[in-house]
Amino acid sequence: MADSAAERRSPAAAYAARFEAASAGGGLRLAEIPFLTQVDLRVDPKSPAAERIGTAIGVPLPVEPGTVASGGDLEVLWLGPDEWLVLGPDGAAPDLVARIAEAAGGEHVSVVDVSAQRTTLAVAGERARDVLAHGCALDLHPRVFGPGRCAQTMLARANVILVAGEDDVRVLVRSSFAGYLAEWLLDASVEYVAGG
């Protein structure tokens, strides 16, 4: 049987060349970050299990809405008052799920590997937030949406999770919407791309 890793293709793989071309000017950089580990976690934040899970993964679950806690190579995104998305590097899911499940013990906890549900589009550079503002109603200024913040919202009518960085925003989009959103990003970028 063929090695399945060799056959993997990320949802926005077909856009790599166009992303690269749009990034040539430097004011804007578009790229897909494929195959990140994503584990959806639901647990009562006040339960002992929530605390044990935080200890087990080395990152306490953030309880303030729209915030991100990070530690080691993991990031924990607040998705709801009892729901988080744990982001990690490619291949980390089996170990991560096992560690969380063990920490959960017999308590009422849901932990699901949803890595294949979304891919990550990195929108970086000084124009990153301007591009996203074309299709997002949230205030993305670093003053209110800077490092340590995330949001579930809509970008160009597609459901997304935005993760803020210093001069970049990562857009987590469902795999079936990745092509649409890649086209939209390229279109919204035209006025910021040198020679475009």
Binding site: P65, G66, G80, P81, A151, M154, R157
Partner: peptide
């Protein structure tokens, strides 16, 4: 009450 002000289209 959790996320703050958002467009009606999100609801």
């Amino acid at each position: 009450p959790w996320c703050g002000p958002r467009d009606e289209a999100e609801f």
